[in-house]
Nucleic acid binder design. Structure first.
Length: 564
RNA sequence: GUUCGUGUACCUCAGAAGGAUAGAGGGUUCGCCUCCUAAGCGAAACGCCGGCGGUUCGACUCCGCCCACGAACGCCA
């Protein structure tokens, strides 16, 4: 579909003004009575030494014929306003959506380019709580958004599968658990013995020494230690897979911290050769004082490597393996400095691709009672939230649609969708104070509202049935219909903006706009019982809205029930 | 203390290359189902867009200073 602004910019030539500038200034008009698109001419006044009013006037007069679907240009108070032919627009867009279906909005801009996305990146043996939700669903959504824009997306779950906590787990396991219990109770067992370790270690500090010894055994490749290590990893991954399935999240790689253990030496070697690694207080750091940052610590005084060291190794590995166009890190903003340092070190090492590494930061999730803490036990498990949302959804279905066949399945889609939507609807950077009241509200700007509108579209289509008559586009050429058409046309630019800004909320916001416009249309204009041409055009509109909602929800990782 | 981020309606938030009268939703009050799904739609009320200066024909948007809140700031990740 051709961008309307491009069409306009191509025919607008103003002496001494760059086409690109014209394109940039063109906007959709807020007030439809003034026109559909508009060009403010104030900027040109200085260059042309004429008043904006005069400029708008003379350009309007010079435009003898406009390309379709534009029909009229009008100069008002220094603005040049353009009107489109509503019928022509409707015919174009609705025709295109009917033809392309879910492929509507696809783009080829990413062809041949790969985008790496590091998201979710869970810690082994730690429960999945609402704090992990943002990175998981933001990353999952961006993954699909880039695919839709034609990129090859690589989803990476950078597992936290290394560190002294594994020594602690082994000690705890050997003292208070066994394989049968672990297989039976899974994560619950892992969490509870881990918590027990901490409480017992307070009175018995020798446990900490034992834990260190066991971690050393893992590093040295001791058979028993490795067996248990792998068992903990297996159980965690098996269990989290259920959550990922509910959230429609996928990964192409689970290479985590352990994977990079043997890949850091060459990086450190290179840093030494380039004289970037200096000794400081026993540790080895890259000095970043010239870039007004604290030094980046890469090797501890005891010789052990750090988080940043592994991230450097991972960045190199990803560049080599995937030759990425961009490499995104969907990680909370607390790690802002860390990523600025790592990217800067990559740059100082002479990698021009350091500029393609982006920290996609998001805000903190806290509880009304304060910050979450696994140790203190005040966490909210994601499964609990999802289950409560599904339960609430089932209550509403039982009340409003008692005859629905697949109640449980629908409740799952609606409940989980509500939770995902609530996270993806606002700017990433906003902090979230978790509240069941908000997540469990299904009215207004929510996932269920969007799903409901889709179900409503499907219901209309099912009731009215097939209609083969030639559509009469006058039937949608009214203020409500025009608003829907304008929204439908914006789908691709919403996806593009989401991709450019790494902001899935652009999609969510767009969907709510679309639903609001359709619901208004639906209230004013009847579809069934109208004459064939009218019915046909309005059905085409309804189907287009349905197609775009379903595809938009898919990009967010949310399902769309047929009925609800 | 330094750096980064955030401040828009009672609440939660949109407002990305400065543009016409600052928008939604929740909540509150009042309306709309003999007719396509009322998880819907409409109306009312709610605003010195944190404050003060500056740039501009024009600033919620850009610049400077200040205030409030949050985060990070060397051997965790």
């Amino acid at each position: 579909m051709l961008d309307k602004k491009e069409i306009l910019a191509s025919v607008l030539s103003i002496e001494g003004i760059d086409k690109k500038e014209i394109y940039g200034l063109l906007t959709e008009t807020a007030d439809p009575s003034k026109g559909d698109y508009s060009l403010p001419c104030f900027k040109f006044a200085k260059v042309l030494h004429k008043s904006p009013v005069q400029i708008a006037q003379s350009v309007a007069e010079s435009l003898t014929c406009l390309p379709p679907p534009f029909v009229k240009a009008e100069a008002v108070n220094g603005y040049l306003n353009f009107f489109v032919d509503g019928k022509e627009c409707a015919k174009q867009v609705l025709g295109e959506i009917a033809e392309k279906k879910e492929n509507f909005g696809n783009s080829t801009e990413g062809e041949g380019k790969t985008i790496c996305l590091d998201y979710s990146s869970i810690n082994i043996a730690k429960p999945f709580h609402i704090g992990h939700l943002c990175t998981t669903v933001i990353g999952g959504s961006l993954y699909r958004i880039y695919q839709k824009l034609g990129y090859k997306a690589v989803g990476i779950n950078h597992l936290g599968d290394w560190g002294t906590q594994f020594g602690k787990l082994i000690v705890a396991f050997k003292n208070w658990s066994n394989e049968e219990r672990l297989q039976q109770y899974g994560m619950q067992e892992l969490t509870s013995i881990y918590v027990r370790f901490h409480t017992e270690a307070e009175s018995n500090p020798s446990l900490e020494d034992e834990a260190r010894a066991w971690f050393k055994k893992i590093e040295d490749g001791n058979e028993e230690a490795l067996h248990l290590y792998n068992l903990f990893k297996e159980i965690t991954l098996r269990e989290v897979q259920k959550t990922y399935k509910r959230l429609k999240i996928q990964f192409d790689s689970y290479n985590g911290e352990a994977f990079y253990n043997d890949k850091m030496d060459p990086i450190l070697q290179e840093l030494r050769e380039k004289k970037l690694l200096v000794e400081d207080g026993g540790a080895q750091v890259v000095d970043l004082s010239a870039e007004e940052m604290p030094p980046c610590l890469l090797v501890k005084a005891d010789g052990a490597t750090l988080y940043a060291t592994r991230d450097l190794a991972a960045a190199y590995y990803r560049k080599r393996t995937y030759d990425f166009y961009k490499s995104l890190y969907v990680v909370a903003y607390q790690q802002n400095l860390h990523f600025r340092q790592v990217f800067k070190v990559l740059e100082k090492m002479g990698n021009d691709w350091a500029k393609d590494c982006v920290h996609v930061a998001f805000g903190m999730v806290s509880m009304e009672s304060g910050a979450m803490s696994t140790r203190k036990g005040n966490v909210i498990y994601l499964e609990d939230v999802l289950n409560k949302a599904v339960e609430k959804s089932l209550e509403i279905i039982t009340e409003k649609s008692p005859n629905l066949e697949n109640k449980e399945e629908t409740a799952e889609t609606v409940g989980v969708g509500a939770v995902i939507f609530s996270v993806l609807y606002n700017n990433r950077i906003k902090d979230i104070v978790f509240s069941y009241d908000k997540v469990l509200n299904f009215d207004g700007e929510t996932g269920p509202y969007v799903q409901y509108t889709n179900a409503r579209c499907l219901s209309v289509m099912a009731k009215v049935g097939e209609c083969t008559a030639e559509p009469d586009f006058d039937a949608v050429d009214n203020p409500e219909g025009k608003a829907v058409i304008a929204c439908l046309q914006r789908f691709q630019s919403a996806i593009r903006e989401a991709g450019e800004r790494y902001e899935p909320c652009c999609i969510g916001r767009y969907l709510v706009d679309l639903c609001q416009s359709y619901n208004k249309f639906y209230l004013v204009h009847r579809i069934s019982g109208e004459e064939e041409g009218v019915k046909s055009a309005r059905l085409l509109l309804t189907n287009a809205v349905h197609v775009v909602i379903e595809e938009g929800l898919r990009l967010l990782g949310i399902g769309a029930p047929q009925k609800m």
